[in-house]
Nucleic acid binder design. Structure first.
Length: 285
DNA sequence: TTTACTGT
């Protein structure tokens, strides 16, 4: 007699729990889709082949998404959008913070004494100017940092980020940016090349897309760690296909096939006026 | 000030 009653009660509790789970999952997925639409174009980056070094999970932030790898112990990509802004003032630089979602202990002081900078993937200035203070604070999470040589971080890379906001963004309604690391071909040969737990990339890529142009345009760069900093930006132009080959990632997976070749298979610079900024000196010399 | 960071 007691048994069926207990079972009924248990069943009701299970039903309520399930209902909650469905509701919360639905809400979460709705929010997830919202984020993906706001921060990506033609789909979230994925992987071509299921290998340990290409698997990642998505961390959502205010203003940008991170594809986080628990094998590299670092981001494989960040995705965000920018547009030209009239008010160029931003808040002061917030402090670096731990990101508990990574589970790996990566502290703000983990890079101290390594000779590497804590290089932003989603940049402080652009995210702050376009998406506001909360988003700016999120860019200082350690999950958004990778070890970057000072000459690259403070000069060549900084010049590219400045060109995006000052020169490219005003030419189009909005830009979709995807940026991240390029690792050496052999995982085992680089496996102990780490700052703390974070694997040191050999180079960094940045993809810039103007999606709303009548004929969508893309620019892509790969910049190695060892640069002087004053090189012309266009020395590092590549196709998106080359970045896909060197990272194992698949960018803009929802692109129609005919557009894919034009956008990803070639390096086309017309419409960007790259010459006007390629040799512009950096702010920090 | 308005674009990086550094055992500040």
């Amino acid at each position: 007699m007691a048994k069926p009653l207990r079972f009924r009660r248990y069943g009701r509790r299970l039903g309520i729990t399930l209902l909650f789970a469905v509701a919360i999952t639905g809400l979460w997925q709705y929010q997830e889709r919202q984020y993906r639409d706001d921060y990506t174009w033609m789909g979230v980056p994925g992987w071509d082949e299921l290998t340990p070094t290409s698997v990642h999970r998505v961390l959502r932030n205010d203003g940008y998404l991170v594809g986080w790898s628990d094998v590299r112990i670092g981001a494989l990509w960040v995705s965000y959008q920018v547009h030209a802004v009239r008010d160029r003032r931003i808040g002061s630089r917030p402090g670096f913070t731990r990101d508990w979602r990574t589970l790996w202990p990566i502290a703000p002081d983990s890079y101290f004494g390594s000779g590497y900078d804590r290089g932003h993937l989603a940049p402080n200035y652009a995210i702050a100017a376009v998406h506001g203070r909360d988003a700016q604070v999120d860019t200082f999470r350690m999950s958004n940092m990778l070890p970057q040589k000072p000459a690259l971080n403070r000069q060549l890379w900084q010049r590219l980020e400045e060109a995006i906001m000052d020169h490219f963004a005003p030419r189009f309604t909005r830009l979709q940016i995807v940026t991240g690391p390029v690792y050496p071909p052999s995982f085992m040969e680089n496996v102990f090349n780490r700052v703390g737990l974070v694997e040191v990339p050999a180079a960094f890529y940045k993809i810039i897309v103007a999606p709303d142009a009548a004929d969508p345009k893309a620019l892509a760069f790969i910049m190695p760690q060892n640069v002087k900093g004053n090189e012309p930006l266009d020395d590092y132009l590549v196709s998106i296909d080359e970045i896909e080959a060197r990272t194992g990632l698949d960018f803009f997976p929802d692109l129609p096939v005919d557009m894919e070749d034009r956008l990803e298979g070639q390096t086309r610079t017309e419409g960007w006026a790259l010459d006007a900024v390629a040799n512009k000196p950096g702010r920090f010399q």
